[in-house]
Design a protein around this nucleic acid. Sequence first.
DNA 1: TGACAAATAGAACGATCGTTCGTAAATTGC
DNA 2: GCAATTTACGAACGATCGTTCTATTTGTCA
Lengths: 199, 199
Amino acid sequence: MGKGEDTRSKILDAALAQASEGGFESLTIGTLAAHTGLSKSGLFAHFGSREELQIAAIDAAAERFADTVFVPALKAGRGLPRVRAIFEHWLRWTEDSGLAHGCPLHAAAIEFDDRPGPVREHLVARYEILQRNLERAFALAVDAGDLPADSDPGQYAFAALGIVFAYYHAARLLRRPDAADRARAAFDRLLAGAPAPAA
Amino acid sequence: MGKGEDTRSKILDAALAQASEGGFESLTIGTLAAHTGLSKSGLFAHFGSREELQIAAIDAAAERFADTVFVPALKAGRGLPRVRAIFEHWLRWTEDSGLAHGCPLHAAAIEFDDRPGPVREHLVARYEILQRNLERAFALAVDAGDLPADSDPGQYAFAALGIVFAYYHAARLLRRPDAADRARAAFDRLLAGAPAPAA
DNA sequence: TGACAAATAGAACGATCGTTCGTAAATTGC
DNA sequence: GCAATTTACGAACGATCGTTCTATTTGTCA
């Protein structure tokens, strides 16, 4: 690959780190240039506009997410084992991929949920793919007999996403040490249809 | 009340509306001044700094949330009825309080979860109160025998918060018409410890 | 009504924003 | 190793950012 592609991917690495810390609103040309050692105009030339940079960063985050969460889970057998693997990787995906300050996609989801434009459209498309992949994993678990036959995979995916969001909230904002335990307990309960969680 | 207090509360109304649309990062002195018809310096004098404005807006949002979600739920009998009332009001609280573009507190939670400072501390304090109120409602349901005696109210509160977050995501970003149905189904399942959700 | 205080406006500041343009340096292909 | 092309820089732009001043208007209360 040419040198351009190389620096471009380095820029996106730095962009993801920055979006992880301060969200996509903090992803300015100036600070990102300073952080990468490039000049503003030099960095700018790689994308043509800040909007294009944001879109590229969203794509990069989505790819990294898929590689960190979904791809490794394919090694687990289809059905509940794979569903559990996805969930476990998900809980730790930001740390595993060097974005220890939070999920950029999650930040983008809140920042752009009411801002029409190509960035939002891109983000929605990515989240729909994510949702579809998650639903498929649950559907395979239903097919395998690991979950009741009349289950709705979409409802499982909805609930699982909520547990992850609650985990982000408890871990990142509230700094609760038991955030992961709470999340796992909630997920176990979701899968088992178990009685009320024990104290 | 003096005229100062009056304009201050009008400013905060506009601030909440703006934070609902574009988050707290979009809450700039200039646009807020234009939106309220005040001059930048005239508006600024009411708070002394942008940070103080953000804190005041968070407090205003938290009070409005409590008035819209928790206070009306007190009319429902303690136990499951009250828990359900809280949840139902929560799903519609932004529309009921004129913040149809999203929950400002939710936006703030993501924007400030990694930005140390007084704004973050204020926000955390507010969310801990919220969590405590929610836990208390679940604890009352346990006491009333509506939930298993060995239940952990904190775990219920964690799961309920996750369902609300998933609802926000599905409704606001993905614009799914069935978001509320999904949320209610998940909540019913949480309360019932029911078997897998039907298709 | 007149004196005092509170509230608002207006202009200006340094900094940073995204973006454009012309030019220099570095890389590539022959 | 030369030529062509890609890549990066530096300076400047108008706009907006939060903030600070000084006036001026407005409201309050004896």
